[in-house]
Simulated scan of single mutants.
Amino acid sequence: MAETGRIRVAKDKADLVKALTSSDGSTGPFQTFADVIVFAAALGAKHKKRVPLGEISKREPSPIPQEQFIVRGYDTVINLLAINETKDINILSFNESNKSEIRNYVFEEYANGGLEILQIEFRGAVDYSERILLFLSSERFQDNYEDEFDLRKFISS
């Protein structure tokens, strides 16, 4: 289970998380590790991709204090993913410490799944910011297209 009070990152995704932040002279599109992890968790949830962490990164980024997520309002995302996954509103209980661990565990696995998707999308990319914009744009148009009436089925080949 998750280390209480901290959000962990899989060791095999640590370099990607670092590359996506704009710290230490890097030009990544995100300001903090927490921003990267929340984006990845949302992406993982959208694609229903939950991946166990395996070996945990001990160094940069080391497990991220949960306070970094709370001050940015990201605890809402953590809670919503946990409710959606468990289908149990009691997962939000603060009286039982294991509920917090379960919430973090679900969040970490969705983030790991999202990071796995990003690893595939970024293969061969030099500029991650540009690649994220292209990726988000294609996702947006793909979603819009699915909502519209598809006239292609009336075209004979």
Rank of each mutant, 00 (worst) to 15 (best):
residue 37 I to K: 00
residue 37 I to L: 13
residue 38 V to P: 02
residue 39 F to L: 08
residue 39 F to W: 05
residue 39 F to R: 03
residue 40 A to T: 11
residue 41 A to D: 07
residue 41 A to W: 02
residue 41 A to Q: 02
residue 42 A to W: 00
residue 43 L to G: 04
residue 44 G to T: 07
residue 44 G to Y: 01
residue 45 A to L: 05
residue 45 A to Y: 07
residue 45 A to R: 05
residue 46 K to I: 10
residue 46 K to T: 10
residue 46 K to G: 04
residue 47 H to F: 15
residue 47 H to V: 05
residue 47 H to M: 12
residue 48 K to D: 01
residue 48 K to G: 00
residue 49 K to P: 00
residue 50 R to W: 04
residue 51 V to S: 03
residue 52 P to V: 14
residue 53 L to M: 12
residue 53 L to F: 11
residue 53 L to E: 12
residue 54 G to K: 03
residue 55 E to M: 10
residue 56 I to T: 13
residue 57 S to C: 15
residue 58 K to M: 13
residue 58 K to T: 14
residue 59 R to G: 05
residue 59 R to Y: 08
residue 59 R to I: 08
residue 60 E to A: 08
residue 61 P to D: 11
residue 61 P to Q: 09
residue 61 P to N: 07
residue 61 P to G: 05
residue 62 S to G: 12
residue 62 S to D: 14
residue 62 S to I: 04
residue 63 P to F: 07
residue 63 P to R: 03
residue 65 P to C: 03
residue 65 P to W: 07
residue 65 P to H: 05
residue 65 P to R: 02
residue 66 Q to G: 00
residue 66 Q to H: 05
residue 68 Q to I: 01
residue 68 Q to N: 13
residue 68 Q to M: 09
residue 69 F to I: 10
residue 69 F to G: 00
residue 70 I to N: 04
residue 71 V to E: 12
residue 71 V to Y: 11
residue 72 R to I: 02
residue 73 G to A: 07
residue 73 G to S: 08
residue 73 G to N: 08
residue 73 G to E: 10
residue 73 G to M: 09
residue 76 T to W: 05
residue 76 T to G: 01
residue 77 V to T: 15
residue 77 V to F: 05
residue 78 I to T: 03
residue 78 I to S: 00
residue 78 I to Y: 03
residue 79 N to R: 08
residue 79 N to C: 07
residue 79 N to K: 13
residue 79 N to M: 08
residue 79 N to V: 04
residue 79 N to S: 13
residue 80 L to R: 08
residue 80 L to Y: 09
residue 81 L to A: 05
residue 81 L to S: 02
residue 82 A to P: 07
residue 83 I to K: 06
residue 83 I to P: 01
residue 86 T to S: 14
residue 89 I to A: 13
residue 89 I to S: 12
residue 89 I to P: 04
residue 89 I to E: 13
residue 89 I to M: 15
residue 90 N to F: 12
residue 90 N to H: 14
residue 90 N to Y: 13
residue 90 N to K: 11
residue 90 N to G: 10
residue 91 I to F: 09
residue 92 L to G: 05
residue 93 S to D: 15
residue 93 S to V: 10
residue 93 S to R: 08
residue 93 S to E: 09
residue 94 F to P: 00
residue 95 N to R: 11
residue 95 N to C: 02
residue 95 N to M: 14
residue 97 S to M: 14
residue 97 S to N: 09
residue 100 S to E: 12
residue 100 S to T: 11
residue 101 E to Q: 15
residue 102 I to F: 11
residue 103 R to E: 05
residue 103 R to Q: 15
residue 105 Y to K: 06
residue 105 Y to M: 11
residue 105 Y to T: 12
residue 105 Y to W: 13
residue 105 Y to I: 01
residue 106 V to L: 10
residue 106 V to T: 07
residue 106 V to C: 04
